[in-house]
Each structure stands twice: as structure tokens, then as C-alpha cells.
């Protein structure tokens, strides 16, 4: 398959099941809601070392938030419910509770599977915390030095998908980056997904395993342009830079949509802007049960 001179490889991205939730952070103004959300989603690029993957899903105006203040919705994913709960609790405690004027709400209902949100943070109130049941949901009012921190007691957990991806193969670093930036602009318009790496783009795609026993993952040498003459390379001579966009989403269909608009944005730049191929991280089925076939997505 070729779109605007860009080859779409006959391959698939391989993704794995994760547990995810959506949180809504509000604040006195949009600036401080964003600061808190950025702190919460910091150091959350990959479960390999961060324990979770998180990102900002959407900026919300006051009419879209529970307390009528400007806010930000974020998605956070982990490999299991317990690890998700731990990450949500520590990040909420250190990055939202501490952030001036903030409040924290669940953005995802699931009565069957919930994890604590303000349920344990309330103890910071040292006995002065106040519970309020509003519309069947419990909220905690925790006295803090700038007033009160309001946090919903629990948030729902959704069976999600992590690790959807595609690779952009270009003739130069600048062209690969410009294409990925264009893709991220379009992909951010899709709900229920995040691209957890810095700016949504990762330049150090990995393969499973390493020659060093201590490592579970190592550089994807087949796509490293400087190793074209040194390893079994997957790159043609004119490809000088490869960048990857990784997508986590609440459902496989959400990731499908994000990949489609992202790849389309890259292809719109086309061969005339140095884009040669679109490929994907494919580990022969070892990594996970969700397969995103590039040509099917773009058909």
C-alpha cells in the first residue's frame, strides 16, 4: 500500500492489555489545572520504568467539569488494577493535593471495578476531613493551607489497551519530527487516547530483550539508522531517521481511530517532504494479543 508516495508496510503494531482510568483535575483557572495535570502525568512515559503511562487527554472548559471550574482530563494506564491504584494514589497525593486551588474527580464510572482516589488521601486531613455524599458519590473535603482540597472518593477502572504504535521513517530527523508533530496534532483530537511519550513522540523505540541479562528491553537496532551496516537492518539506504508514536487507549477501537488520523497526517506530508515509510513495532506476537494491522486501518 502506498499513500501519497509513502509506503505502508504490511505489518501490525502489537499492543497489550492494561488497566486504565480517567481523572479530571480542576483549579481556579486553566493555567493551574494544567500545571497540576502536567505534574501528575510527569515521568509516566512507559510502564517499563515509570510504573504507569499517563498523559493529558483534553483541556476542559468550566461547563464540562463537575465543579464548574476550568479543568484537564487525564488518562493513566498500568499493567494491573493494584499498580494502577498505587500510581493514582501517589501521584494524586504528591501532584494534585499539593497543587494550589486544585480539585480531583473521577472521569470514568465503573461500579464493578473501582480504585481509591481521595479515599486514602483524606487522612492527610488529620481528622478534620469532611465527607459529603452528592448524587450517590462520596467526596472528601480535606482542609489545606489554601482552603479545601476536594477529591472524589473513587474512580472507575476500565480494561484498556496499551502500546498501539506506528513508526515514521524519513529521510532526515527534521522531516521525521515534523511529520510526527503533524500526527500528534490530529491524534490529540481523538477522545479516550493518550500518546504518553514526550510531546507524544518517542525516538528510542525498543525491542523485547537484550544481550544484557538485567534488561527486558533494548534499542530496536533494526530501525536504528546508524546501524544499517552493522546489524540486520530494516531500513533502506535513504532512511536517516525513525520516530515512533505510541498510543494507549480505553478501547482497541479508540486506538484504531487515533492511528488512522495520525498515519493520514503523516502521509499528507508525503514523499515530497521526505517521508518514506510507515511501519510498526511488531514482535512476532510475543508482546500482546491486540494487533493493529496498518494496511487494514488505512484501507
Amino acid at each position: 500500500m502506498i499513500i501519497n508516495g509513502v509506503i505502508i508496510d504490511e505489518t501490525f503494531a502489537e499492543a497489550f492489555p492494561m488497566k486504565g482510568t480517567r481523572l479530571i483535575i480542576t483549579a481556579l483557572n486553566a493555567k493551574w489545572a494544567m500545571i497540576s495535570a502536567q505534574a501528575f502525568t510527569g515521568f509516566a512515559t512507559s510502564v517499563i520504568a515509570c510504573g504507569c503511562e499517563a498523559g493529558i487527554e483534553k483541556v476542559l472548559d468550566a461547563s464540562e467539569t463537575p465543579d464548574g471550574r476550568p479543568g484537564v482530563s487525564i488518562l493513566i494506564f498500568a499493567m494491573g488494577g493494584k499498580s494502577l491504584a498505587k500510581q493514582v494514589e501517589t501521584r494524586s497525593g504528591q501532584c494534585v493535593l499539593t497543587s494550589p486551588t486544585s480539585a480531583l474527580f473521577s472521569g470514568l464510572d465503573n461500579d464493578e471495578k473501582e480504585i481509591p482516589l481521595g479515599q486514602n488521601l483524606r487522612y492527610f486531613g488529620d481528622g478534620f476531613q469532611i465527607s459529603k455524599m452528592i448524587d450517590g458519590k462520596r467526596y472528601w473535603r480535606i482542609p489545606v493551607m489554601d482552603g479545601e482540597f476536594l477529591a472524589q472518593e473513587k474512580t472507575g477502572v476500565h480494561n484498556s489497551v496499551g502500546g498501539g504504535n506506528f513508526l515514521v521513517l524519513a529521510e532526515s530527523q527534521a522531516q521525521a519530527l515534523a511529520a510526527c508533530e503533524a500526527a500528534i496534532v490530529e491524534m490529540k483530537k481523538i477522545p479516550n487516547v493518550i500518546m504518553p511519550f514526550p510531546g507524544g513522540v518517542v525516538r528510542s523505540g525498543s525491542k523485547v530483550g537484550s544481550k544484557f541479562k538485567a534488561l527486558n528491553a533494548s534499542t530496536n537496532d533494526a530501525f536504528c539508522p546508524t546501524l544499517k551496516g552493522q546489524t540486520k537492518s530494516d531500513l533502506s539506504p535513504e532512511v536517516e531517521s525513525v520516530m515512533e508514536i505510541v498510543i494507549d487507549g480505553l478501547t482497541k477501537e479508540d486506538i484504531d481511530k487515533a492511528m488512522r488520523v495520525g498515519i493520514q497526517a503523516v502521509c499528507d506530508l508525503g514523499a515530497e517532504n521526505g517521508i518514506r515509510r510507515i511501519s510498526a513495532g511488531n514482535y512476532g506476537g510475543k508482546l500482546g494479543p491486540f494487533h493493529f494491522h496498518l494496511q487494514e486501518i488505512m484501507a
Binding site: T26, P66, D67, K132, G147, E148
Partner: peptide, 8 residues
């Protein structure tokens, strides 16, 4: 005080 839970 301005209490966030009241609008909710």
C-alpha cells in the same frame, strides 16, 4: 471561604 464542594 470559597468551598469547592458547594457548586457540586
Amino acid at each position: 471561604h470559597t468551598l469547592a464542594f458547594l457548586p457540586l
